[in-house]
Structures are given as C-alpha cells and as structure tokens.
C-alpha cells in the first residue's frame, strides 16, 4: 500500500500519527484474544499436574519439560503424525488434481449441462459430512475401503470438491482466452493448453484450495473415527485429532501431558498455514471479487 506520489505520504503520515497508537492497541488486543487460549495450552504443557491443579492461571514454575519429552518419545505420537500427513497429503493432491480438471471443463468449455454440473457441485456445500455419515460409512465398507487410508482420503476429496471447484472456476475464467488463441496458433491442442499454460497460471488458486483441503483433512475427526478407528487400523496409526481424544481419555488425570500432546498436534498445520497465508489471500481474491 505504499503511496507513490510525493503528496500522499505526507498526508497519510499525518493521519497515522494520531491514530497509530490506537490502531496498534486494537490490533494487539485482537492478537492477545486470539492467541491466549493457545498459549495457555502450550505453556501448561510445561507445568506439572500438581502445579496446574494448585493454580490454574499460573506461570510455569518451575518449567517442567517431562510432558513434552514423554509425548515426543512415544511411538503413537509419531505414528499419528505420519498417518495425518499421509491422509492430508493424499487428500490435498486428490482435490487439486480432480478439482482443476473439473474446473477447467466448467470454466473453458461450452456445453449443455455445464450449469447443471456446476450446480451439482455447488449443492455439495449444503451437505455437511455429518448428515450422511451412516450411509457413507456403509458404502465405504461395501467398497472394501474400510480401515484403509484410501477409505478416508477418497471421501474427503469428495467433500472438499465443492469448495475447490467454486474457487477454481472463477480463477480459470480469469485467464484470458487470448492466451488460448495464441496457443492454438502455435499448434497446441486444448489439452496442451491445459498442461502448458493453464496449469502454471492457476498455481495460486491451486495453492489456496490445497491449503484449505490440507487443513480440513488435518483437523477432521468424524470420518477418521468411522473409517480408521472403527476399521481396525492400529491405534498408532489413528490421525492426530483421534489421537488427541484417545490420549485425553487414557491419560485424563495427566492434564499436563494432554496439553503437551495437544500443543504438538496443532503445530504442523499451524506452521503450514502461516507459511502459505499470503498466497492463500492471493488465491482467494479471484473467488470473492467481481
């Protein structure tokens, strides 16, 4: 937002000078409210249970590292982490590939049923997974996908498709048709155009839908519960949200360890999101702006 004219900075500066402290105060208040509950969880992971029970609002005194060390030293944490990564990466890749292909057709082809196709996907927004969990579960069992990574990944892809397509279609439509004309003149087929021009240009949109799908998968609870936990996968391979609740049940007297496990479980998604945040904003722009 840097102003480029000579007059503007002076004016802007004067404005900021009086309102600036207030703005910072407001901004940091929002930050505090957002972060305090999370910091509470992280910090209390560094406290012994006796310490937490004696003074729930206290600072770690002394700092107690055993909770984190216990969690980091357990097979099940690493197993859950690996499992969460497999499921999230699989879902993300699947959503990106299927999503961009379908969005390409909807955005760049003119055919009867195009609007209908789009409406079918858009209607998916109205179906939360919880609505259909029982029939979905039965279906997955009948397809023999129960208790497997694919049994979680494929339905997650399906439920992430509406969002993905709705974000990607406007993104693809924004790519000028002239590029396609040019490609055609160079002898590229429609498919060639898709591969060589459209795909690279739609990277920002793909990153956005990818990150959203990744986080959705990382945090998902119900489907992994029905498919992995009840599907006979060993406990060490349950995804992290299941691991958190299982851990919280098993060690419910051990608040500190539960908080440490919780802290570590949230870390990867958090880092991933923060790293990609700027790109997400960029990728969403097409979807929310006329």
């Amino acid at each position: 937002m840097a102003a480029t004219t000579t007059a503007a900075p002076a004016v802007a500066k004067r404005r900021i000078n009086w309102s600036s402290p207030l703005i910072y105060a407001v901004a940091y208040l929002v930050v505090v409210v957002s972060v305090v509950p999370v910091l509470y969880v992280w910090l209390n992971g560094f406290r012994s249970n006796a310490d937490i029970n004696a003074n729930p609002a206290g600072w770690p005194n002394p700092w107690y590292f055993q909770n984190y060390l216990t969690v980091l030293g357990s097979d099940r944490f690493w197993g859950s982490l690996a499992s969460s990564i497999i499921v999230a990466v699989g879902t993300t890749l699947g959503v990106a590939v299927l999503g961009i292909m379908a969005a390409f057709v909807i955005a760049k082809y003119d055919f009867r049923g195009r609007q209908g196709l789009y409406a079918v996907f858009a209607a998916g927004l109205m179906f939360p997974l919880t609505v259909a969990s029982l029939p979905l579960n039965l279906l997955i069992r009948n397809l023999g996908l129960h208790g497997s990574f694919l049994g979680v990944i494929i339905p997650q892809i399906a439920f992430a498709l509406p969002t993905t397509i709705i974000i990607l279609v406007p993104f693809l439509r924004a790519i000028p048709d002239e590029l396609e004309e040019a490609a055609a003149i160079d002898g590229a087929s429609r498919i060639g155009f898709f591969w060589r021009i459209l795909l690279p240009l739609s990277m920002p949109g793909l990153i956005t839908v990818g990150v959203l799908a990744f986080i959705g998968s990382w945090n998902a609870y119900l489907l992994p519960l029905l498919i992995m936990a009840a599907g006979g996968m060993p406990q060490n391979l349950w995804t992290l949200p299941l691991g958190v609740t299982q851990f919280a049940t098993q060690y419910s007297q051990d608040t500190g360890a539960v908080l440490a496990y919780t802290s570590l479980a949230m870390l990867p998604a958090l880092l991933f999101f923060i790293a990609a945040e700027k790109r997400i904003v960029g990728g969403l722009t097409g979807a929310v702006k006329g």
Partner: peptide, 14 residues
C-alpha cells in the same frame, strides 16, 4: 452408539 451399530449394519468383515 456409533461404532458397533454401524459395524453391525455393514456386516461381513466390518
């Protein structure tokens, strides 16, 4: 309430 009823309904190896 969730796991056993759904597993029984699915039947077979589930």
């Amino acid at each position: 309430r969730t796991l056993i009823p759904q597993a029984l309904q699915a039947g077979g190896d589930a």
